[in-house]
Each structure stands twice: as C-alpha cells, then as structure tokens.
Simulated scan of single mutants.
Amino acid sequence: MQAIRSRDTAPERLVRSLLHAQGLRYRVAARPLPNLRRTADLVFRPAKVAVFIDGCYWHGCPEHYVAPKTNPGYWSDKVARNMARDRDTDQRLEEAGWTVLRFWEHEASAECAAQIAVEVMKRRAQAALADRKKE
C-alpha cells in the first residue's frame, strides 16, 4: 500500500503541465475548504474550482474497475467508501459555492486540461463581473 501514490501521479502531472503552459496557476494537493479534511488534486482558490483526477481502481471507474480476487470483502468495501466520500466531498464543496471537476485517470489529459481551463476562465469572468456590479 505504501507504494501507491496519493499525489503526483502521471495523469496529474501531465494535466498540471498542460495547465501551467496555458498560464494557469493553482495549488497542488490542497484543501479547498480549511475545515474539510479532504484534498483536491488541483485547487484554483479565487475561481473556486476543485479538480480531482481519480484512479480507476480506487474510485470505482465504471469502465475499468475490476473487483479484487484477494480479500474481496475488504477491498470492495474500501472502494465503496471511497466512492461515498467522493460524493460527500462534491456535495460539501458545491454547497460552499465551488465547482467540482472530476476526471478518470484514463481520460485524455489534453481534454481534461481544456475543460479545466474553460471552467476556470468562466468562473474568473463571473467573479470579475460580480466585482464590477458591487462598485
């Protein structure tokens, strides 16, 4: 278990590289909400966008998840708890006004980065418009 990376996986690094090349800056493996003990893979704080790049096995990908043959009760329960925690995290962040973007590790990194960039730019534009209305 200690060999399994919780951050800096190859798909995460590739998406981060593509976003950085577009001039976007973000926090890595950060808590979107200080009182929520969960970290997102990428956090765009001012835009309130949290990005998760989920592993197919650990988060129960509908396309690629294969139930374990060794100790199936424990591992299947663990994956089910991970999925429930993911849904809870999404709900809490959305209630706090955040946009949550989730991608599977098998999705094309360029497409993920493009979707993230569009959402961050959209949220930044909305925030700028709201600031102008306040003035």
Results as ranks from 00 to 15, higher is better:
1 M>Q: 12
4 I>L: 14
5 R>M: 07
5 R>H: 08
5 R>T: 03
6 S>W: 09
6 S>G: 07
8 D>Y: 14
8 D>N: 15
9 T>C: 06
10 A>T: 10
10 A>N: 03
12 E>M: 14
13 R>V: 04
13 R>D: 01
13 R>K: 11
13 R>Y: 01
13 R>W: 02
14 L>F: 02
14 L>S: 13
16 R>L: 08
17 S>F: 00
20 H>L: 06
20 H>T: 10
21 A>H: 11
21 A>K: 15
23 G>Q: 13
23 G>M: 15
24 L>M: 14
25 R>A: 06
28 V>Y: 11
28 V>R: 15
30 A>E: 13
31 R>L: 07
31 R>N: 01
32 P>T: 03
32 P>I: 08
33 L>F: 03
34 P>N: 05
34 P>A: 13
35 N>V: 03
35 N>L: 05
36 L>D: 04
36 L>H: 08
37 R>K: 05
37 R>N: 04
42 L>G: 02
42 L>V: 01
44 F>H: 07
44 F>K: 04
45 R>T: 11
47 A>E: 10
52 F>T: 05
53 I>S: 09
54 D>Q: 06
56 C>P: 01
56 C>V: 00
59 H>L: 10
59 H>C: 10
61 C>Y: 01
61 C>F: 07
62 P>M: 01
62 P>Y: 05
63 E>W: 09
63 E>L: 14
65 Y>V: 00
65 Y>K: 03
67 A>D: 10
69 K>V: 14
69 K>L: 14
71 N>W: 07
73 G>D: 14
73 G>W: 14
75 W>T: 12
77 D>K: 15
78 K>G: 04
80 A>D: 09
81 R>F: 03
83 M>G: 03
84 A>Y: 02
84 A>S: 08
85 R>H: 04
85 R>N: 05
85 R>W: 03
87 R>P: 01
87 R>Q: 12
87 R>F: 02
87 R>A: 14
88 D>H: 14
89 T>W: 03
90 D>K: 13
90 D>C: 09
91 Q>H: 10
91 Q>C: 12
93 L>T: 06
94 E>V: 13
98 W>G: 01
98 W>C: 03
99 T>Y: 00
100 V>R: 09
102 R>P: 00
102 R>W: 01
103 F>E: 03
105 E>T: 02
105 E>P: 00
106 H>I: 02
106 H>M: 06
108 A>I: 12
109 S>I: 11
110 A>W: 07
112 C>D: 06
113 A>Q: 05
113 A>W: 09
113 A>K: 05
114 A>N: 12
114 A>S: 10
114 A>M: 08
116 I>P: 05
117 A>S: 11
